[in-house]
Amino acid sequence: MRLSHGFVRGEALSCIYHGWSYARSGNCLRIPAHPGLTPPETIRVGTHAVEESDGVIWVAVGVPTAQPPRLEGVVPLRSLTAHTGVAAVEAAAGAKAGAVGLVWQAQDAQQIRLLLAPQGDEQTLIHVLLDHNSSLSQRIGASRAVERLRRAAEDLQTKGIAP
């Protein structure tokens, strides 16, 4: 069970399954099934450097050498999970992701910025960003366009066309 399914209470992050909670440094603070027990130091989870910038939370894999890229002029719209790898999403969009994400020109929609985060086991988390001046109907249109993109990417994967 990933801790991302869990909940934050005070300064601790807790697992949704059995409520084990962890401090910022990754050590286990509390095992609810055994409230009298001080969790040993060996029970800990990995930690990552985190940075918040332009409305997006960035997580570093390893030791980051630079600040996250700036995403000026766009605002976050939504995030969604595709049951496919990054390559299939790129293939469906007809563009590759660069340092500031993938710039996608959807049919019947404005330009959409996508940040693609591989989740392992053939899943990709897609963060959708739009021009900050977008109207409500443009935002709804973009949201639907990205759902179509997800379906297209998953179809490519099923048909074995994407790597």
Binding site: Y17, P32, A33
Partner: peptide, 20 residues
Amino acid sequence: IAHFPFVHTDILGAEPHTEV
């Protein structure tokens, strides 16, 4: 049973009664 307070909250378990 240890997951009751967290997954079946207020039915099969509830904090602070988490001890097994």
